[in-house]
Amino acid sequence: MTVLLEVSGLVRRFGGLVAVNGLSFTVGSSEILGLIGPNGSGKTTALNLLSGALKPDAGDIRLRGRPVAGLSPDRIARLGVARTFQLVRVLPSLDARENVLAGLAFRADPLWGEAADREVSHLLQRVGLGGRGHQRSAELTYIDQKRLELARALALAPKLLLLDEWLAGLNPSELQDGIGLIQSLRREGLSIVLVEHVMDAIRTLCDRCIVMNAGSVLAEGAPDAVLSDPQVVHAYLGDPDA
C-alpha cells in the first residue's frame, strides 16, 4: 500500500491552548483511517490543518510526498483533498445542482457545461438526491444537506476525503446506506480520514484508527484493539468514580 498522506509533528495552538499537539500519522491509498477521541480533543482542528483552513504552528504535512502544510485551502483542494464540515455547510442560496457544480468547476481538471451537468446528476444520484437537483439547498432537510455536502466534496474527484462526523444524526437505515456509500468510495481507491463518534461505523469501516486526547495521540491500531484499550476507555468515560 502506497502512502498518500504523511503527517508528522503537527502542532496548532489557540492562545494558550494547544489544540493539536505533535500529531503524526500516515494514510495509505484506499485506506480509511478513523480519527476518534472525546469532545475537544482536536479532531476537527486536525482536519482543518489538513485541508488548509488553519495553518499549523509546527509540523509537516505531505500529500504523495509533496509538502502542503500552510498552503491555502484552494491550492490543497486542487491537489485533491476534499472535506465535509461537522456543522453542515451547504451553499444556501444555490440549488442542489449548483452546490455540486461548485465542486466540479474549480478543481484541477475543471468540468463545465454538458459534461458537468451529467456528472452533477450522477453525483446527486449517488448520494441519494436524484431528482432533487433544483431544490434550494437551504430548504433541504439536515440529512439531505449532509448528502449534498458529500456530493460537493466528491465532485472534486479527491484522492483524500476528510469526513467530520458525517454519519452523526442519521437514523439506523440511513446509517447503513451511509456506511455502504463510504465503503464503495474506498473500493474506488479513495482514501478517507473519518472523524466519527458512531462506534459501529468505526468498527465496520476503519482499517486503523487513531485516538486523540487533548491534542495528542493516545492510541493507534485496529478499531477493536483500540476501543478496548483501558486508556481509551478512561479518556472517553473518565474516572469510574468521577
Binding site: S72, A77, A82, F106, R152
Partner: peptide, 17 residues
C-alpha cells in the same frame, strides 16, 4: 458561479478550489 459561492460561504468556496 465562483462569486456566488464566495458570497454564500467563503470557506466552502476555498475548499472547492
Amino acid at each position: 458561479l465562483a462569486l456566488r459561492v464566495v458570497g454564500d460561504d467563503e470557506l466552502v468556496a476555498r475548499h472547492c478550489g
